[in-house]
Amino acid sequence: MNLPTRRKEMMNRLLKEQVVKTVLAMIHEGTPVTMDKVAFRCGVSKGTVYNYFKNKKDLLNTVHEAVIIPIKKESCKIFEKKIPPMEKIYGFVENVFNFQKEYPLYFKFIQSQRSAAAAVTERMDLIIIPLVNICREGMHQGQFMDADPYVMAAMIFGTVVGPLESLTYREDALQDLEKLKQEIVRFLDKSILKEQERSL
């Protein structure tokens, strides 16, 4: 590959990264995301943004992928570790809360932008199916209550993600995210573990 081609590819990658960072900053601020505003904040013309993204949906899909890939990688690492099943679930909780700290308004924003079908498919692939496998492992080892692993996995997902999705709808602002995380872990312990495992 010649130097001008490499330079052009590098510039394209840098501009795309700048656009993604700009959109994430706008989400963090609660600023409406439009192609005009993204172009203005990146210091380029709207036409330049359209050279890289077909439309706003394409732009937001690219941003979502940029956000979700690191989470997916981290979750995979947690789910594949040779540790007890409940430790994997605690790792999943930690990963979700770390994401919430880094992108506090992202759950609310993404709910308003993605179709229900896309969200369900992504949730099943990234989280539910791996959690089903962890639940089966925990039941097989005699640590988890006997239950339908899909029901248990969906319950775990709802218990962990549901409170974060509802943060912006609370009448009173939540002050202590760490306390919320501990309450979720306590609830999961009581809901998943067999009685003898809880007392250890």
Rank of each mutant, 00 (worst) to 15 (best):
I192H: 05
M11A: 15
I78C: 02
I192T: 11
R13Y: 01
N2H: 11
H28I: 01
M26Y: 01
N12W: 03
L60F: 12
K16I: 14
N55P: 01
G91W: 02
F157C: 04
F92W: 13
Y52G: 06
I71N: 02
K37R: 15
K21N: 06
A39K: 10
A118S: 15
Q18T: 10
Q111G: 14
V19K: 00
N55I: 04
L15H: 04
P32H: 14
Y169S: 09
K81L: 07
F144I: 08
R198Y: 05
E178Q: 12
I89F: 02
K101H: 08
P149F: 07
I129Y: 09
T159H: 03
Q113P: 00
K72A: 08
L180A: 06
F53L: 14
K37A: 13
G138K: 11
N12L: 05
G138E: 02
F79K: 03
V67Q: 07
V96L: 04
L126Q: 11
K88H: 09
T5Q: 09
M1F: 08
I184L: 04
M86E: 03
I68A: 11
D172K: 14
H28Y: 06
E197Y: 01
M152P: 05
L164F: 03
F99S: 14
R7G: 00
N12C: 03
I192D: 01
R114G: 06
T168K: 02
R198D: 02
D58I: 06
E17Q: 13
K56L: 15
K72C: 02
A154P: 00
C42G: 06
Q196G: 02
Y50E: 08
K108Q: 13
K81P: 04
V38T: 12
N133Q: 11
H140A: 09
M155T: 13
K8P: 01
Q111V: 04
I69W: 07
E80S: 15
R6H: 06
P32S: 15
N98F: 05
I129M: 06
E65M: 09
I69A: 05
E17N: 12
I184Q: 01
V93D: 08
R7A: 07
G43S: 06
R123V: 00
P85H: 06
S191R: 12
I128M: 05
P84K: 14
F187G: 13
A25Y: 00
T159L: 09
A25H: 05
L193R: 14
P163M: 12
P4V: 11
A153Y: 00
E183T: 06
P70V: 05
H28M: 09
R6I: 11
Y106C: 05
E165S: 09
H64C: 07
T31Q: 13
R198K: 14
V160W: 02
K46R: 15
E137V: 00
E183K: 04
K179V: 12
P4W: 08
Q111Y: 02
E171A: 05
I156V: 14
T168M: 05
V38P: 01
T48E: 04
F187L: 11
L59V: 03
F97P: 07
V160M: 05
Q18H: 07
I27S: 07
L126P: 02
T62D: 12
K108D: 08
V19N: 01
T31H: 07
N98D: 09
E102Q: 14
I83P: 02
S115K: 12
L14Q: 13
Q141S: 06
N61E: 15
D176N: 15
